[in-house]
Simulated scan of single mutants.
Amino acid sequence: MVAFDQNENDLADVATMFAAMRDEGEAPAAAEAETVKGDALNMPFDDGAFDRVIAAEIFEHIPHDTAAMADLYRVLAPGGIAAVTVPSWLPERVCWALSEEYHTNEGGHVRIYTRAELEAKLKAIGFEIGPHHHAHALHTPFWWIKCAVGTANDDHPLAAAYHRLLVWDILQAPRATRVAERLLNPLIGKSVVVYLRKPTGKSAG
């Protein structure tokens, strides 16, 4: 497993998580994991290096998103599967309306995708488009609250209370919230997930 990002602090957190999983015996004995820092427009990996890739909440940050998509195609092996996630159109549109800071800060979101636009760009690169779904509906109100009270205002009572709720939900996964999120995901899921396949017998687009 390789965790790839441009942010050294995020990679350090991932490395700590990997180490904790090994210490707790939560990772298979033969499993290997590493972190790599780099640019999504020119990843330091060989062509076809990976059979599976997850690109989670990346392309909305990159001005030249199609170049990053092409490099994702390059490092995926023929026949390989990728899962790409970006913020869903409606929840993201509300966030932009509530807070200019949310999308104008350094490294912030530079575009809002419709699923049709995302899939069209990926298809133009050469990917075969598979199924999709929405996820993380319970996270959407949290970001609406954050945008309303200030994205850096972590101590606001409402934001702090909702954050505690999300942490409790992640750790406990109670049936009631799992059912509620499944029902809400198609409506206000924070992310849309699109599954892709790289055809066999083709080079990077």
Rank of each mutant, 00 (worst) to 15 (best):
E119A: 11
A56Q: 08
E8S: 14
N42K: 14
A40C: 11
A137K: 01
T177M: 15
V149A: 00
T114A: 08
E106C: 04
G189L: 06
G126Y: 01
S203N: 12
L41M: 10
P141Y: 03
L166V: 08
E100S: 07
A160L: 07
H133Q: 12
E34P: 08
W168D: 14
V2S: 03
D65Q: 02
A161D: 04
V14N: 00
G189N: 09
A176T: 14
W143M: 02
G80Q: 04
I81Q: 07
K123P: 09
D71R: 05
V94H: 03
P87V: 01
A176G: 09
P87T: 04
N9L: 14
L41H: 13
G205H: 06
A55I: 03
E100Q: 10
V194G: 01
A204K: 10
K202E: 11
A148Q: 05
H139N: 12
W89T: 13
L41C: 10
W168M: 12
W168P: 08
A56N: 12
D5S: 07
L138N: 06
W143E: 01
F18G: 08
V86A: 04
A27N: 12
A68I: 02
Y162I: 02
L90I: 11
H103N: 09
L158G: 00
A135T: 15
R197I: 02
C147Y: 00
R115F: 04
L72R: 02
R182V: 10
K123L: 10
Y113C: 06
F142R: 11
R111G: 06
T200V: 11
A124T: 09
A160Q: 10
D51G: 13
L90P: 01
V2M: 04
G150A: 07
A12E: 09
E100C: 01
K202M: 13
W96C: 09
L187S: 14
V75P: 00
H156N: 05
I58E: 02
H109W: 03
G80A: 05
I129N: 05
I170T: 15
D10C: 11
P63R: 03
A19I: 12
Y73E: 06
R52N: 07
P28S: 07
A67P: 00
R52S: 09
P131A: 11
G130N: 09
T16G: 15
L122V: 05
T151A: 04
P91D: 09
A97N: 12
H139M: 10
P186S: 13
P199Q: 00
V36N: 06
C95F: 01
S191Q: 12
A160V: 04
V75N: 01
H132K: 07
G205I: 03
A33H: 13
A83W: 03
R164T: 15
P44Q: 13
N185F: 06
F142L: 11
K37W: 06
Q6N: 15
A33D: 09
P28E: 06
P186H: 06
